[in-house]
């Protein structure tokens, strides 16, 4: 559903371009330097959530993003989930309204993963709302948003060092930050972890100026993080996730069990890695 949505929207954009024979031109990008209204979102939400009602965040989810996208290719965004509420969050959809492919990612969390914090990095093409919509176990949707101004100057949402990105394709790095908090159950520890994957995460919206064909998109479309047999989280990703996808998250870890990561990109390449997590580091 999610992928289909992206492709359709891209197909539409590409088809329109082919007919008009002009360069990409999203009218919403240019002139408005003030905060835009909800027009883009209103035209978008039906594609993503159908007719489902979307409530306010209700203290369940909060978002933090810089007011200005300093580097359009790397905009950090921070999500926090309030687990004190009765309802567990099943999934979070991250959206950048004004990007060519607005759905950046859909994250799903394992039933006992206890994820309370998730940070990642986005490409932000224009002055845009960045939204996070949480789905709780009762099926209700809760939305929070932050407005991000586009970067000034020559920063572009593109790969900085294209050869390097390809040379290290699929390389992963996992960092575990020690955590002092004990979780509610004695078997687990609240753990702060960071997962990094080398990948250009190409947009595919770049055009070969000679052939006028689009260079195919190449990005991480699926990612799963698990510990032992437990799912911590999964992600269906799109091109609005930055080059070298990066996720920092806090969850309930079981000391001694390995962390396993599986990822797949749009060219069908699979990347896997496993890390023993020493009891001492948790």
């Amino acid at each position: 559903m999610f992928e289909k949505m992206i492709l359709q929207r891209r197909d539409i954009i590409i088809a329109a371009l082919a007919v008009a024979g002009v360069l990409v031109s999203q009218p919403s990008v240019a002139e408005d330097t003030s905060s835009p209204g909800d027009a883009t979102w209103n035209s978008l939400k039906g594609d993503v959530f159908g007719q489902r009602p979307i409530g306010n965040d209700g203290g369940i989810i909060s978002i933090e993003a810089p007011k200005r996208a300093e580097d359009a290719a790397i905009v950090p965004v921070d999500l926090r989930f309030n687990t004190a509420k009765d309802q567990r969050i099943k999934a979070v959809t991250l959206i950048v309204d004004e990007n060519p492919a607005p759905v950046a990612a859909v994250f799903k969390f394992g039933p006992d993963a206890g994820v309370t914090h998730l940070a990642t990095r986005l490409r932000v093409n224009a002055y845009s709302y960045v939204r996070a919509i949480a789905e709780t176990e009762d099926g209700k949707l809760h939305m929070t948003q932050a407005f991000v101004k586009a970067s000034g100057g020559c920063s572009a949402p593109a790969t900085k060092n294209a050869d390097e990105a390809m040379a290290n394709l699929g390389k992963m790095k996992l960092r575990v930050f020690s955590s002092k908090t004990l979780s509610s159950t004695s078997m687990t520890r609240v753990t702060d972890m960071q997962l990094m994957i080398r990948h250009p995460n190409n947009s595919g919206l770049q055009m070969d100026q000679v052939t006028r064909y689009y260079i195919p998109a190449h990005f991480i479309q699926g990612l799963t993080v698990s510990q032992g047999d437990r799912l911590i989280m999964s992600m269906e990703g799109g091109i609005s996730i930055s080059e070298d996808p990066n996720f920092r998250f806090e969850f309930d870890a079981k000391p001694g069990e390995d962390i396993k990561v599986e990822a797949a990109d749009t060219e069908g390449k699979k990347f896997e890695n496993e890390w023993p997590v020493a009891t001492s580091s948790l």
Binding site: L23, V24, S25, Q26, V29, A30, E31, D32, T33, A72, N125, A126, A150, G152, C154, A156, P157, A158, T159, A162, D163, S203, L205, Q206, M207, D208, Q209, I215
Partner: peptide, 21 residues
Amino acid sequence: RNLRRALESRGDYYLESYRSS
């Protein structure tokens, strides 16, 4: 040697993003 590729992936964005300023 990389200039063409770099402009192909950014050119449209540059044209769009500088319009307001």
